[in-house]
Design a protein around this nucleic acid. Sequence first.
RNA 1: UGGGGAUUGGUGUAAUUGGCAGCACGACGGAUUCUGAUUCCGUUAGUCUGAGUUCAAGUCUCAGAUCCCCAGCCA
Length: 578
Amino acid sequence: MSDRHFIQQIIDRDIAEGKWGPKGDGSVVKTRFPPEPNGFLHIGHAKAITLSHGLAREYGGTFFLRFDDTNPAKEEDRYVRSIVDNLRWLGCTWEGARDDDPMAGVRFASDYFDRMYQHARELISKGLAYVDDQTPEQIRATRGTPTEPGRPSPFRDRPAAESLDLFERMKNGEFPDGSRVLRAKIDMASPNFNLRDPVLYRVVHAHHHRTGDAWKIYPMYDWAHGLEDSYEGITHSLCTLEFENHRPLYDWLLNNLDGVHHPRQIEFARWAPTYMITSKRNLKQLVDEGHVDGWDDPRMPTISGLRRRGYTSEAMRAFCEEGGVTKFNAKIDVVRLENALRDHLNKAAPRRMAVLRPLKVTITNWGEHGAPTRVEELDAVNNPEDESAGSRKVPFSGSLFIERDDFIEQAPNKKWFRLAIGKEVRLRYGYWVACHDVVKNDAGEVVELLCTYDPTTKGGEAPPPDAEGKVRKVKGTLHWVSADDCAEAEVRLFDRLYTAEQPGKASGAHIDDLNPDSLEVIAGARLERSLGEASPGDRFQFERLGYFYADPDSKPGAPVFNRAVTLKDSWAKVAGQG
RNA sequence: UGGGGAUUGGUGUAAUUGGCAGCACGACGGAUUCUGAUUCCGUUAGUCUGAGUUCAAGUCUCAGAUCCCCAGCCA
C-alpha cells in the first residue's frame, strides 16, 4: 500500500537511480513556481505552489519563485508584489527569501534574456531555427489542421548566416512588431501543433516592467520556460495538464542545445472548486464590472480574497495538501475548503459572544435578588479546545441583547430549543432565563422580551433538585451581550458568489449565475466590550455564529468583522424539513 | 475527421510482481455536550461499457463509450 502520489513516485525513482546526483540523495530535488505577473493568484495556484514547495521541502531540496515575465504587454510590477506577498503569506518561501527584503531571492525570466538570446543563436547556427518574414496571418494559414499537415515557410531554408543577421537586427529594433519571428525548424507535418515550427521569438516594442526598453524581441513561453528551468537546475518542472502537448517541444529544445541541464516536466491536474471560477478573464470581469469590490473582495477565490475573508494560511495549505495529486480533472467541493478553515479555527480561534441582530431582553426579577442596577462579572472560557487560552469576565445585568433569530413567540415544534413565550433557556456562562411576556411596537413586531432568571443557575449550572428531587432541564443555550456594556460593529456576511456549482456551465455565462445575496452588511451588531478594540487581522469564533475576521477596514473602537465561515448548522436542516 | 491525456461510492482519493476494493469528505442514525459547534461510535454507497486471458482482474489483452487539452507572434 503506497500513499505516495504519482509525482512522488517519479521523484523517488529518480533519486534511487541517481538521475540528478548521488543515488539516494533527495537534496538534489529542485522545484519552482513560475507565475506570469499578469494578474492575481487564485485558489488553484495555491495548490500548485504548495505542491512544488512541499515536494522540495519533503526531499530536503530547493524551491524557487521565478516570474515568467516574457510578455511585457500584459505584465505589471504590482502583480509581482502581490504574488510575492501571497507566497509569503502561504508560508511557501523560496531559496534566498529574507524577512527584511520581500524580493530577496526572487528570480525573473528577464534576468536570462541574454543567455536565451545566445542559445537561440546556437539553434540558428545548427540549422534548427530560422527567421521567418511571414505575417502572423500567413503563418496561421500555413499551419495546417488536425488532419492536414502545415506547409513550410518560404524562408524555412534560409541560410543560417542570414537568419543570424536578421535575428540580431530584430533584437536591435530595426523591424516593427509582427514583421518577423524566429521559428524552430522541426516538423510541419507533426500531429502535435507545437512541433509545426513553433515561434521562439517575436518582435515587441513595449516597455517591460523590469528591463524597460532594452529588448525589442521577447521569447515565447516554450523557448523561455525550458531554458529558465535549465539555467536554474530545476530537476522536476511541475505544470498543469494543458502543457502535456508542450512537453515534446520542451524536450526537443533542450535536447538540441549543447551541454544544458535537462529537467523533467511533469503535468498534474488543475482543481475546479465548486461554486467558484478561476478563469483570469472572468475574474477580471467581476472586478471591472463592479460585481465585487476588487481582487481582494472576500468573496473572490483569489488568495488575497480568501485571506481577507479570514482564511488562515494553515487552512489553505491543509486544503491543498489533503486532496491528492493526480492527472484527473476533478471538481472539488467547496465544503472541503470551508471544513479546512473550521478545523483550524476550532482549535485556534478564541471564543467570544456577539449578537448580530439584537433583540432586547429585560430581566424583570433582576432587582428582587440584589441591587437592581448591579452588574455581575461572569467567567467565560476562551477556548474549550485549548485550556491554555484561559478565561475572561463578561458583564451580566438585567438588560441584555440576544439574537433575534433565537426567539419566536410560539415554538413551532418540540425541536425548538431556543426561546419562546413560556420557555426557558440557558444564557451561556450566565443564568437560565424564562420568557413570560413580550413588548411589541405599533407594527406588531416584538421589540423586547420580558424574562425572569433563576439565581441558582449562575454560571450556567443546572439548578438544584426541587422538593421532589427532580432536576429541571433546559435544551437550548443562547449567546448574549450586556445591553449596557457592549461594543458596536459592522459585520459582513458572505454567501457563495455563484448559485451554480459550475458557474456558467449550464447558463452559458458565469455572470448569469451570480448570487444576488452573496453579501449582507449588518450595521448594528453588538459585541462583548473587549471586541471593540479588535485589531485588523484578529480572528474569533463568535459562539454559535461562525468564525470572524477583523477586516482591514476596522478602526479603533469601530471594528468591521467578516464572517469567514459559519459553524456547521444541523438546525438549519431540521428547520428546512419543516 | 488528427494528436495528447483521463475515467474507482454523491465527492476527492488509495490499492506492491494480478491476491479480501481501503481512507477522507458528505449523507443518514446514535452517544456525549453550558456553542443545534466540537468530540466519539455506527450505517450508507464504488472499479465507464462489452468481450477475452487466468484458480484469481480495478490491475493484463482487444473493442467501444464519455470527458478534458491542442491549429496565439498568450502563458
